[in-house]
Design a binder for these strands. Structure first.
Lengths: 225, 225
DNA sequence: CCAAAAGTGTTCCGTCTACACCCATGG
DNA sequence: CCATGGGTGTAGACGGAACACTTTTGG
């Protein structure tokens, strides 16, 4: 039961986006150097203030769209971060959101325009404010969810090989997976469909391309890695 | 990379507390009727605004302390709720926190003073604003965490019987558990210690009382229900 | 012809599940 | 003496983990 508004002070609220990508068998994050004070020049997540006429998710989607040109990305709230002095300038509470994107869908000129870089997760520098904490929590949640939700497909092209899929799981979980056991498991899911197409780019022999059938998945949305 | 503060508008930020208790083999929530506008008279979680000089957790702890007189409760953030019109009066973003308390530790006169009631989880009325959503997410998270963290002890007295413990799990997971299998599992945890004490209150024969040894748990903090 | 990745089954072991009866006591 | 909850063990099913070789082809 909230008390009356007027007795209390308002604060700024922002969103910060933790953008995961997958390339070269590594999980990567998109970060950039802050181009404004406070914290100018420090590595940082990309964010923005929440406007008075937008929902939190809308604000996060706006920031993501500006940055990537992509809509309908997978996006999930990570949590609210509100230590008093987390922003050295003013009191700002930030809601962190995590997004998964397919690096290939992402226009690299936009990346350069915003001065962003892909960093391997295990080579992350010290970031501005509490952004490292946000990432830590995002990874924790991602590792949980990847086991019960078909998320990996968001990090891959719509057609992918089973080896690529396996590498995504390995990168997120941080451990190697047995190839035969993995494929055996995948075969039990109807919504991961083999196509007639062959990828001849990543191997000499060629590998079958698969696709994630969202409709089939929604008919029976059970998934257990 | 956040933009300059001044271009953007501030909003009110509140915390709302989802307080779980356990009694009569049921999981319960503490809610009350709003005593102020907007929403006067509607059932509601208890909350409060975040002051400019406190962290989010501090605000939640303050609200919890005022309400229960208890400190050092188990408390975890559930998430930020920020739909534009979630508060009918003004734009208020709320961070939901979930707490677990032992009903017996709770001074019932405080409950009456604040006009609060314990409601069974499965008999929850329609609550003010998005509070039902908050509860839904809190339960989802609780069900996840209860499997990997020793949380149930927060809902029980420091001395408890194995049957009580089992009932907590059953109430949270919403399914019956086999007594023998449950006890077999519990015996594998060193940090759940049998005492010499006997509870003669809940049964004629008497049941051994156990205690959760936090120190032992911290030495080897692995737990899997 | 060789390096590099794709593809494919079986066995073993440990864990989870199902299941029923005796015990102690207060009323 | 009986109703109530406390306490205990085993066998079978199932799922997860370990493990190695053949195929294809581009260079």
């Amino acid at each position: 039961m909230t008390q009356y508004y007027s007795e209390h002070s308002k604060v700024w609220v922002s969103v910060d986006c933790i953008i995961f990508g997958f390339e070269g068998n590594k999980l990567k994050l998109l970060i950039g150097k802050r181009q404004m004070d406070p914290g100018r020049g420090e590595w940082s997540l990309y964010g923005g203030f929440v406007n008075s006429n937008e929902n939190l998710e809308d604000a996060a989607n706006r920031v993501l769209y500006n940055l990537t040109g992509l809509r309908k990305l997978y996006m999930k709230q990570v949590g609210a971060f509100g230590a008093i002095d987390r922003d050295p300038g003013e009191r700002v509470i930030s809601i962190a959101y995590c997004a998964l994107i397919n690096v290939k869908d992402y226009d690299d000129s936009l990346r350069e325009q915003y001065g962003l870089e892909w960093f391997n997760l295990d080579e992350m520098p010290k970031l501005y404010s509490d952004h490292n904490e946000m990432i830590k929590k995002a990874i924790f949640l991602l590792r949980q969810r990847i086991k019960t939700e078909p998320l990996s497909f968001n990090l891959l092209p719509s057609l992918f090989t089973l080896t690529q899929l396996q590498r995504v799981y390995e990168a997120i979980l941080g451990q190697e997976i047995d190839k035969r056991n993995f494929r055996k498991r995948i075969k039990t899911f109807d919504f991961i469909e083999k196509t007639d197409l062959i990828d001849k780019f990543h191997s000499k022999r060629g590998a079958a391309l698969y696709r994630f059938n969202k409709k089939t998945y929604n008919e029976d949305p059970t998934f257990k890695l």
